[in-house]
């Protein structure tokens, strides 16, 4: 309990300077836009509210729960922030959390901070928000929308953010894409379950005590349409790019052939480590992951279609 829980924060040294700087520029752009948007919306309350909520997400990450074998799961919070505050305020809060983690705990590098802000802030938050909005639209205010939407938003955002980190590592030549992406995504598919459950727990608590905080009309007004489309495009882009990048089979096969641990790896199940990842390489897992991602996207498309049809029916009647 003497440091903040480690996550998928990329340390310095892993990304090439070019990749780091490009991501810094993206992070700064996102923060500047977020400051403007949140400022318009919250006015004078922006600084106190964003500050205290960033501290809240940070502190919330210490709320852990025992999983098994001495490991524990804990909140990451991007989905929760996105759902409760809307995408721009969510980005701002997560960017501050990521920044403090790097500055105080050296959890994530300083040059790599841009990357971590993009992954934990921009990618997670947009994805979570897009997913949540779509499920909300399909549910049309029914309670299951909050539960399913909260879970899906949290799970997908964790997985997609991890894939973004893996892509950056691969682009920096720090890890072969066909290993980094499936292992990162695979581990985070398990971590995402915990995140989903915690997020649902938090939303249920708030729905019972302060309904006004979970009403989403507010966030819809803040964000406008463009944002959740951006979230979806981002999610799909990463989801498509990742399997593509990781389907170059030669690297994977050589590893398998060279060291012959494919068989061993297949028999050992994934474990959730409280931090990073295990280099378990897994042909089976790769195909499962790709199938999983495709499945998630299908659910997306169906939910979106349903929402559109219902809305159409609504305006027609």
């Amino acid at each position: 309990m003497l440091s903040s829980p480690a996550q998928m924060h990329v340390p310095d040294g892993f990304l090439t300077t070019t990749v780091s700087i490009v991501l810094w520029v993206l992070a700064v752009l996102a923060i500047v836009v977020a400051l403007r948007r949140v400022g318009n919306d919250l006015g004078e309350r922006q600084v106190p509210l964003m500050g205290v909520l960033a501290a809240c997400i940070f502190a919330g990450q210490m709320l852990n729960f025992p999983v098994a074998g001495g490991t524990s799961g804990h909140l990451i919070g991007a989905a929760l922030a996105a759902i409760l505050l809307g995408p721009w305020a969510g980005i701002l809060v997560l960017a501050c959390v990521t920044g403090i983690q790097a500055l105080i705990f050296q959890d994530g590098g300083l040059l790599a901070m841009g990357s971590n802000i993009v992954n934990m802030g921009v990618v997670s938050v947009f994805t979570a928000w897009g997913v949540y909005r779509i499920v909300q639209m399909a549910a049309r205010g029914a309670r299951w929308g909050m539960i399913v939407g909260g879970f899906a938003a949290a799970w997908i955002s964790v997985v997609v953010a991890s894939m973004a980190a893996a892509l950056q590592l691969a682009a920096s030549g720090a890890s072969p894409a066909n290993v980094a992406i499936p292992t990162m995504a695979g581990v985070h598919m398990l971590i995402g379950i915990g995140e989903g459950l915690i997020t649902v727990g938090a939303l249920s608590f708030l729905a019972a005590t302060r309904r006004d905080l979970v009403s989403h009309d507010k966030t819809a007004a803040v964000a406008g349409r463009g944002v959740w489309i951006a979230g979806l495009v981002l999610a799909i882009g990463l989801a498509v790019a990742s399997p593509l990048a990781s389907t170059h089979p030669d690297g994977l096969e050589r590893v398998a052939a060279d060291i012959g641990f494919l068989d061993r790896a297949q028999s050992s199940p994934y474990k959730i480590f409280s931090d990073y990842m295990i280099p378990g390489i897994h042909n089976q897992a790769l195909s499962t992951i790709v199938a999983g991602v495709v499945g998630v996207l299908l659910v997306f498309v169906v939910a979106y279609g349903v929402a559109r049809m219902r809305r159409g029916a609504n305006t027609a009647s």
Binding site: C56, L63, A202, L203, L213
Partner: peptide
């Protein structure tokens, strides 16, 4: 996990 979530919600509120 969900009860940890309840605490997170409480903290958020």
């Amino acid at each position: 996990a969900r009860s940890a979530g309840g605490m997170a919600g409480n903290l958020f509120m």
